[in-house]
Design a protein around this nucleic acid. Structure first.
Lengths: 203, 203
DNA sequence: TCAAAAAGTCGACCACGGTCAACTTTTCCC
DNA sequence: GGGAAAAGTTGACCGTGGTCGACTTTTTGA
């Protein structure tokens, strides 16, 4: 009976992630030991390492999955009449909310995304691509409307906005801004700054 | 004999940092155990924890110290005739070179600076302040020369440039750019983008 | 059908970072 | 000077994430 094995593997993998989501959510990531997780998932400790290379990879696998959904939803229902800044704000604040639902989750996730170890590298290319596509489409649409310059590379424009998002999140983690509203305001300010330019202009 | 104690503490602290620098540099941070470090520093393992709360704090203490020197030197000899982008590039590339001299050092340092845990928070305020002062002075000088708008908050302008620096470093860690030159080029491009603005302008 | 190979499972085991209560050294003050 | 308090030191000890070789289940193909 072919496929029996694969089916079981899927089930086990799901059992591990489900147990992880529950335990990480209940007690926190650091407070959940691999032994406890293994027990909750109904497998031996060693088995988990057949599915995930490290503890943090379990978290990452979960985030990856969830963020995928977030992006898809956003791509479908982003208001195409709003201006670019509002659209970007919608996207980035959704990511912010997701990433910071659990502060500890978010920190591990962001650290791994922004300053990855070699090991983790490939895992995020697919996610990156899907994410960039979304931003790209917002930017090109804005360019088509004549709001944005079209002589800069798309990647650099997207990166520019992304980096400002990272700054906003970092400010939150550093405690320089505290509430979601402040993060959104700061980000909006920065986005406008990026669009208008920092250069002194003749009146 | 007053001060005897303090003097000894200073010596021990230095012995620990010196041993750490040597071992971390030789074998790498993760490959150096606290037991080995303690032995090399000529103290008991427990003693180290009287000076540093965690292993990573040792690395951070060292980076902090070194970066302090880098900033001081830069502040003294930054070319005040060059334009803002070149000045910023000088400062940020110096930081990049320092931070990435050892890739592992840098990753831990950056992760802790950008997405800190509560514990580490206060440790960097002094460093932050010294660093921001340097950037601030470059920006205000540029504003005085009439190159930059002066209706944006200093902190937001500095943050803007800083976030683009982070993007450049992140690209390096992600392997999207490989050489120091590429990092510098990318950063220059982004800085110019920030100054010119992303908005489509009438001719 | 069945035995050998391949894939998957397991928990005892390891080295690690970090803690702590017992111990030593330094300081204080009578 | 001396004795008590404060500060500093220590390594055995703890729980952790991750490994590994012995074991079980599934697949393969003759």
């Amino acid at each position: 009976m072919a496929g029996r094995r694969e089916e079981k593997k899927k089930k086990t993998r799901k059992a591990i992630i489900d147990a992880a989501v529950k335990l990480f959510g209940d007690k926190g990531y650091e407070q959940t030991s691999m032994a406890t997780l293994a027990h909750a998932a109904g497998v031996g400790k060693g088995t988990i390492y057949g599915y995930f290379k490290t503890k943090s990879e379990i978290l990452l696998a979960f985030c990856e999955e969830q963020l995928g959904f977030v992006y898809q939803e956003l791509a479908e229902k982003t208001d195409s009449n709003a201006d670019l800044v509002q659209q970007l704000l919608t996207v980035f604040m959704a990511e912010f909310r997701f990433v910071t639902r659990n502060k500890e989750f978010g920190r591990i996730f962001l650290r791994e995304i922004i300053f990855p170890k070699e090991l983790t590298l490939e895992k995020f290319h697919e996610l990156d691509a899907r994410y960039l596509d979304l931003i790209f489409s917002l930017i090109t649409a804005s360019q088509a409307r004549g709001e944005l310059r079209d002589d800069y590379e798309l990647l650099f424009i997207a990166g520019h906005f992304y980096s400002l998002y990272i700054l906003a999140v970092s400010s939150w983690y550093s405690g320089r801004v505290q509430t979601e509203e402040e993060v959104a305001e700061g980000m909006e300010h920065l986005f406008n700054q990026a669009i208008e330019g920092l250069k002194q202009r003749k009146p």
